[in-house]
Amino acid sequence: MRSLIDILELTTKELDELIAVAEDIIANPAKYAEVCKGKKLATLFFEPSTRTRLSFEAAMYELGGNVLGFSEANSSSAAKGESVADTAKTISCYADIIAMRHPKEGAPLVASMNASIPVINAGDGGHNHPTQTLADLLTIKREKGSLSGYTIGFCGDLKFGRTVHSLIAALSRYENIKVVLISPDELKLPDYIRKDILEKNNIEFIQTESLESVMPELDILYMTRVQRERFFNEADYIRLKDSYILTPKKLETAKGSLTIMHPLPRVNEISVAIDSDPRAAYFKQVLNGKYMRMALILKLLEVEVK
């Protein structure tokens, strides 16, 4: 029995297989419509997350399965002081697979160590969010045709952005990737990720504060939100906030084949005028997330589809 807590638990072969299954689901949805009939997904969301929870629930329904669970800690036994371990053991009696979001880092791992059914980490604080990375990988594969051989720019908050860290880790195992890190000095990629992932895997990368200067080089632009509370002083925030907002003007020098991604929710870092640009892929990312979650549920439940 397998769980998925960290994206790096999956080999590149397994990632490629998941992507292949997701693409087959997209091409042949009817083939998968009943494959999880009689199976139940428990969505244990100890903090609210509309998109991820609904994505998991939609994924299970589209596989013909059922869903039970809760969407905030107040409506679970956690409010009475139950441990994550006990919750996992209890839910194992009711469901076939768990998707868990928890504000504490490592909580889904604790659940997986105590549950007798697979556990999927649906986000644990600022730590891991592997199914977002799966969504990102499928989006890159479908938009670019391959997970190798392109220049990807990460823009905004690269210090606290867990989606950026996980995607960089996952991409580091593919070939000919060039990484451009675009952020203010205060929100630069942490040293340990730069050293342990980029330098260790000999991935070519540059760091810059200017999005405009690197725009013509990019094949993919992964935007993230720059949050006011991350800055030490208001003056720096005001000075920098507009540098990391994507507008049609900033896209003038971009490639026609650029793919614009964002893990969402967006606040103002991508102008809504860009939504109709064919290069915008962030809503496709949401849809791809559902397909990858379907593929992952099938893998962890060991459901064979002929």
């Binding site: 441990s83 994550v84 371990a85 928890h102 504000p103 504490k104 880092e105 490592g106 909580a107 791992l109 604790v110 644990d124 604080g125 600022g126 730590h127 342990d196």
Partner: peptide, 21 residues
């Protein structure tokens, strides 16, 4: 010592560290 770690709220959990480097 990470206040966001699950071990900060669930007292019965073992504190386990693994060698990564």
């Amino acid at each position: 010592k990470n206040p966001r770690c699950i071990t900060s709220t669930e007292q019965e959990l073992s504190h386990i560290f693994r060698l990564t480097d």
